[in-house]
Structure formats: structure tokens, C-alpha cells
Nucleic acid binder design. Structure first.
Lengths: 201, 201
DNA sequence: CAAATTATCTTGACAGTGTCAAATTACCAT
DNA sequence: ATGGTAATTTGACACTGTCAAGATAATTTG
């Protein structure tokens, strides 16, 4: 009846990740508990602790997957619009806000406090998240190299500030502070213009 | 021995707010619990519930005070540098990041999820926080009126996007993602330049 | 001034939570 | 078959927020 074929679940690690991701999508990061998760998977309260040191470790693992998905997504998008920098930037900003809006709970986990401040992030999460950002930095620098972006401004700074802008918008939107969904397109455009204006060659 | 002169505390409401603010400064938003707070004030576990409907209501009240302090601070700073718009913007950006860095836990409470997403924010908190932002919008618009900012861009958009930038930077800094404290001055300058570039007349 | 009402605070209780220690069960290599 | 190890469970502890009911003080009313 239950999916368990044997005492040993056989695939608990993976199934925990999947079910937890599902729960986060449904009830948010705070709506997840080790006990409820265990019950949904059909296993005892503390079973998960043999696959993840902590609740934090579990959350880190999910966040890590999130970053990998994001990177894959943006890498593909970059591939499709490789030539046109102007168009790519617009698409990137739009996609960033769109994704963070469509999957607010996952975004919240990836960039949220529970993982980053309270429970120290896993080393592998650090790596995955940083790789995501590093790609962005490299891209900007390559455009500077090609003369499409001004070299007067440090590429890293531009990446930091522009990412901050997108992050801030996403958070304010998702949390319902100041910004509202209706003007999201107009704000996207303003954001793009702002980045371009700052990097005008 | 205890500060209580009588059965009725006499000033519980205020003292709860103060002690809670202190606790948040020390241990962060998540480090606060109704029970621990009650004990520190020297009162029983559930005494606070006669002054605040919820834990959420308490947090909202503290956040509200935070917004009022912020607004007062920026209003005074605005007063000191009333003439020079360029200088004010620089001072504003610097002060924003400085404050959110100095009081990360309070900032986290004011703009954080526990209040805005999970437990719905109090109506009065909504008002206080929005007033804070509205002042910023009005200021930008007045500069547009004086011809110091371009009128091509909508003042509200500019306010939204630039505030998002500051908010994003604050969060990334405080949570330890991507940005690091060492380059905060350089990032501040880049942020200012970016805003000015977008609003160049 | 006495009685009743109201505001304030306490005690008890319940359903949750994360997580550790020890016992239990199943698998795997010798 | 027999150890040994990996996986899972049960029990327990110290927390959490918050509700309901009782206890106490202040305040209003007669």
C-alpha cells in the first residue's frame, strides 16, 4: 500500500528533498517541519536526521538545487540571445523578476534568512550560490571587454549594484512592501534603463 | 526586589516594547520569544497577551517604532542639507546602508518576512512604513519640479527602483550573500552614480 | 463607604517544534 | 551463518505560541 518496499526506504534522501520542495511550494519555508515532512514521506519523525545533519542542512540542500536550476535556466537563456546584449539584459531582468514572483517560496529560501543568517549555510550552498553570481559578473566583464559596456565602472561593482536592485525588487514585491505587482513591467523597464545608463559607453 | 510595586505592573505595555527591542538587538528577531520576554520583564508567560493580541502584533508595534525613528532621522538629515540635492542623495544612500548595517536586526524586523508575509502586518504599521516611502517619493518629485531631476522618468518608478537597490544591498550585506562589508563605500558610490545617471536632466 | 464592574495578571493546559540517545530492524560482506 | 554496519524507530527533553479559567488589584457605581 505504502511506497515502502522494505524497512530500508532505499531512496529516502532524494525523496525527502522532493517532498520538502513540494511542501515549500505549498506552504512556504516556515510551513515546513521535520516531523510533518517525515509523516508525508511515510517515515518516522527522526528518520531524516540520518540523511541530513540538521533541518538547516536540509534547507541548504534544497536551496542549492534552486541555485543550480536558476543557473541552468539563465545559461540557456543566455545561449538563445547570445548576440544581442541589450536584448539579453532586458530578458534577464524580466526573467529574474518573473521567476522570483512565480516561485516566491523557493526564492525566499534561496536568499532568505533561515539559511543564510540563522543556520550557517553549507559550504556547498555557498559554492552553488556564488557560482550563480560569478557567471553574472563574468558576463558583464566580457561585455566590457567587447566595448559594449563602459570600462570606467568596475564590472564587479556594476554586478553587485544591479543584482541588489533585482533582489530588492523581488523581496519588496514578494513581501508586499511598497511595490505592487501591477507596475512590475514598468519597473522592469526602469531597472533596465538604469543599468544601461550607468554602463553607457 | 523586583521592579513591581504592585500586582498591576502599571507600565507593562511600554516596558514590553522596550525590552523586546533590546532583545531583538541582542539576539535577533528569531531569538525573541514571548515567554523569554515575559521572564525578562519579570511577569508571567501570558501577561503580554493582554497588551498585544499576538506575537505578531508585538513585532508590528516594534517595527512601527522603527519606521518612525527612521523617518525622523532622515527628515532631520534632509533639513541639514536642504539645498544641495547631489549631496543629499549621497548622504541618504550612505546613511541608509549605515543604519541598516548598524541595526541589522531592527532592519530585518522592519522589512522582514515574519511581519510582512507570515503574520499580516498591522494597519498602523502599514501606514507608518508607507509614510516613510512616500516622503522619499515626494522628495524626488519636488526635485523633478525644480528641474534638478529629469522629468522623463516617472518619479514613483525612480523611487521604487532606487529604494529597491538600497534594500537589496542592505539585505545581501546583512545576510552575507554576494556583497561584503569591505566594498561598501565603493558600492555606495556606484549606487549614487547609478541613480544620478538615470535621472540626469 | 460598600459593592459591583472592569482591567490586569497568573496558573494550567494543549498541541506543536527540533533534536538527542538508545533500541530495533534490515542489509551486506565475510 | 555471523558479524558489522547502515537505516529506521521509539522515547524523551526542553522549548515554543496561545487559549481558558481563575485570582487579584484598581475603578466605577450605588
Amino acid at each position: 500500500m505504502t511506497g515502502r518496499k522494505s524497512y530500508h526506504h532505499g531512496n529516502l534522501h532524494q525523496e525527502l528533498l522532493e517532498e520538502a520542495t513540494r511542501m515549500i511550494g505549498e506552504q512556504g519555508v516556515d510551513g515546513i517541519s521535520m516531523r510533518a515532512l517525515a509523516e508525508r514521506v511515510g517515515v518516522s519523525r527522526t528518520a531524516a536526521y540520518h540523511h541530513f545533519k540538521d533541518k538547516n542542512a536540509l534547507l541548504c540542500a534544497i536551496a542549492e538545487q534552486g541555485f543550480e536550476k536558476w543557473q541552468a535556466h539563465f545559461a540557456q537563456q543566455m545561449h538563445e540571445q547570445s548576440g544581442d546584449m541589450n536584448g539579453w539584459l532586458k530578458a534577464f531582468v524580466h526573467a529574474y523578476l518573473d521567476l522570483s514572483w512565480k516561485y516566491p517560496e523557493e526564492y525566499d529560501l534561496m536568499f532568505g534568512r533561515p539559511v543564510w543568517k540563522n543556520g550557517e549555510p553549507t559550504e556547498s550552498l555557498r559554492a552553488a550560490s556564488f557560482a550563480c553570481f560569478q557567471h553574472y559578473v563574468d558576463l558583464i566583464r566580457s561585455w566590457q571587454g567587447k566595448g559594449k559596456f563602459s570600462k570606467d565602472i568596475d564590472g564587479l561593482r556594476l554586478a553587485q549594484v544591479s543584482w541588489s536592485m533585482l533582489h530588492g525588487m523581488s523581496r519588496l514585491l514578494n513581501d508586499g512592501i511598497y511595490l505592487d505587482r501591477n507596475s512590475i513591467d514598468a519597473m522592469s523597464d526602469s531597472a533596465v534603463e538604469m543599468i544601461l545608463a550607468a554602463a553607457a559607453v
